[in-house]
């Protein structure tokens, strides 16, 4: 009978010693027949930019700030509890048309909860409880029909979640579900094409709108989700870290899209990426452990933060 430990020990023994007295392979010297290519030292400009921090690059990439329109949603003294956990503490914020509000802060500080509360998705969690007032165009959102409210305040999630249907059916989904009668495909087509164009996806999928949505790439899927939300003609678009699962190129496309969309919509975006908040945000709200620590125009929050915790977070002291 062979003890399994013994047999493994023997195997190790065999591998650690050259079998049958064979010598290990000779050491080969690497000789250079030409000078190695050395990376050139960074130029003065690049050094200057690097010293100024990542943000100056971001600033160069960012478009002009949006022009704030009328206030569409108001959050007044909002608190959200999950059981005993006080996730969002007495937050008040305005959400204006024509600009992007970026919510930043470390993980678990209540950003996503705040966002989901705006869409009343927190109500799906049995233990969640809300205090405070949220209004949409002056109306308390609790007085609105929940489906009506969610049509006006739509949401894009962190993970792209297209339905297991064709591209066309995904975008047409909300339109079909809005009416009591299912409209014909011909009737829906212009709306679907328009939504896809606004989401910047149409050129890539126009040849085959029957393509299964789940076979698109991650970035395309996320833009499809944005198109799906836009097709319902929402007034406020909530985005929960829409780029965190995407590659830099797709992120870039979606950021351009956000900047484009803010002309007609109010956008709230949650992001972990400070550069992204700086690039797309018109106003920035910094949250920490459920508190709203600082809210202000993006330049002010990033360049001249008022609160010490904001300064530490933006400076990278904690994340």
């Amino acid at each position: 009978m062979i003890d399994p430990h013994e047999s493994t020990a023997r195997q190790q023994h065999v591998t650690s010693e050259p079998a049958n007295g064979v010598m290990p392979p000779p050491v080969r010297r690497i000789t250079l027949d030409r000078q190695p290519t050395v990376a050139l030292p960074p130029s003065q400009d690049a050094v200057a930019i690097a010293n100024a921090g990542d943000r100056s690059l971001a600033a160069a990439a960012r478009p002009a700030r949006g022009i704030a329109g009328p206030e569409r949603m108001t959050i007044d003294g909002l608190s959200v509890y999950y059981g005993d956990n006080h996730a969002v503490k007495n937050v008040s914020l305005p959400i204006r048309q024509g600009e992007v509000l970026a919510l930043i802060g470390p993980s678990g500080c209540g950003k996503t909860t705040l966002l989901r509360t705006l869409n009343r998705l927190t109500e799906l969690t049995g233990s969640a409880r809300r205090e405070g007032l949220i209004t949409l165009d002056g109306e308390d959102i609790d007085s609105l029909e929940v489906t009506e409210h969610r049509r006006r305040v739509s949401m894009v999630f962190q993970q792209p979640n297209p339905f297991p249907m064709s591209v066309f059916d995904n975008v047409a989904y909300a339109l079909r579900e809005q009416g009591s009668k299912r409209p014909k495909k011909k009737v829906l087509e212009p709306y679907v094409v328009d939504a896809l164009q606004r989401a910047g996806l149409y050129d890539e999928v126009s040849s085959n709108l029957d393509h299964p949505a789940l076979r698109l790439s991650g970035g395309q899927q996320q833009r499809l989700c944005i198109a799906r939300a836009l097709a319902a003609r929402p007034e406020v678009l909530l985005m929960d870290e829409p780029c965190s699962a995407l590659d830099p190129k797709s992120t870039n496309v979606i950021e351009e899209l956000i900047v484009e969309l803010r002309k007609e919509l109010a956008i709230v975006i949650v992001t972990h990426n400070l550069q992204q908040a700086y690039r797309v945000g018109d106003h920035v709200a910094f949250m920490y452990l459920g508190d709203l620590v600082e809210y202000g125009p993006t330049d002010q929050v990033f360049d001249n933060p008022q609160a010490a915790r904001t300064r530490d977070y933006i400076g990278g002291a904690f994340g």
């Binding site: 929940v146 009506e148 969610r150 999630f157 909300a174 579900e177 799906r228 319902a232």
Partner: peptide, 14 residues
């Protein structure tokens, strides 16, 4: 996936 259902709900479907 829950995400599909949430996606539908977020579009204003009951």
């Amino acid at each position: 996936p829950r995400a599909w259902k949430e996606g539908a709900l977020a579009l204003g479907v009951n």
